[in-house]
């Protein structure tokens, strides 16, 4: 009986958490379309999420592009004529998959944690209650700007990551393996379709939403002082990372099912 009770408590806690997250998400989304909209706060968050994440996303993207070309070259050596597909696979891999996922995971670590820590500290120091007493809706002031900025900033970051990643592959292919630069670029351009880029941007917009949502949700519901804020931060990063990988599969299945 004790075992069943424990299982029951876990199941109830799961549905309770899922319900709270759903209500939080729907409430936040409903406030996205109702005034007042704090444009200055959205721009500030856009700069925080987008501009300040550029170095880390750029660095990650160039190394991912480089290692991809390296691995493909050694792997495709086993197939006759396989080496000629390196440019195509690098650009396809970066735009459809690696660009959005790597940028999403890096931003989840950097921004998801920062949002959870900031909102969580505001919760445990009564700053969120203070907002309410000053006739300001915390959802509109704290959550909506971060959600909207996340949705817009991630696709911009991914566009940059796509270009840098392809450039990384180009560097390895041309300088290390002696590919003809013009032919490599021509192969890349000929093979790439706009749908490859757009699918990556759609994914990244969803990832941006998930990162901001989990940061805000865990921060908003944190309690118990420094320990609670620390737990919220960890949970924000872990849950956003898992959700990114989950939604990556779901969106890939939906976008490329045909």
């Amino acid at each position: 009986m004790a075992f069943l009770a424990r299982v029951g408590r876990v199941v109830l806690a799961f549905f309770s958490a899922a319900g709270r997250l759903t209500i939080f998400t729907l409430t936040a989304l409903s406030h996205c379309f109702r005034p007042p909209i704090y444009v200055n706060l959205i721009l500030r968050q856009f700069v925080d999420i987008g501009y300040y994440s550029l170095p880390v996303v750029g660095l990650t993207a160039i190394f991912i592009g480089m290692v991809l070309a390296l691995q493909l070259h050694t792997g495709f050596n086993r197939i006759t004529g396989g080496e000629s597909a390196i440019a195509q696979v690098v650009v396809l891999g970066m735009t459809r998959e690696l660009g959005p996922v790597i940028a999403g995971l890096m931003v989840a670590g950097r921004i998801g944690a920062a949002i959870a820590a900031e909102v969580g500290t505001m919760r445990v120091t009564d700053q969120i209650d203070a907002l309410s007493t000053l006739s300001t809706n915390p959802y509109k002031y704290l959550v909506v700007p971060r959600l909207l900025a996340g949705i817009v900033a991630l696709p911009v970051l991914v566009l940059v990551a796509d270009n840098i990643g392809v450039f990384g592959g180009f560097l390895v292919a041309t300088y290390k393996f002696g590919f003809n630069p013009a032919a490599y670029l021509q192969n890349t351009a000929d093979f790439l379709r706009s749908s490859d880029v757009i699918s990556g941007l759609v994914k990244s917009a969803v990832f941006g939403f998930l990162i901001s949502l989990m940061g805000c949700y865990t921060g908003y519901h944190s309690k118990g002082g420094a320990q609670g804020v620390g737990a919220a931060t960890t949970y924000a990063v872990v849950s956003a990372s898992v959700l990114i990988l989950m939604f990556d599969y779901i969106l890939s299945a939906l976008l490329f099912s045909s």
Binding site: M122, T125, D126, Q127, D129, A130, S132, T133, S135, N137
Partner: peptide
């Protein structure tokens, strides 16, 4: 409702125990 509560809150001022000033 939350909107009515926000209007009502204009009648109130509150000093919190830890001041609860906005850090940013």
């Amino acid at each position: 409702k939350r909107s009515e509560r926000e209007k009502l809150m204009r009648k109130f001022g509150m000093l919190f125990q830890g001041a609860a000033l906005f850090d940013s």
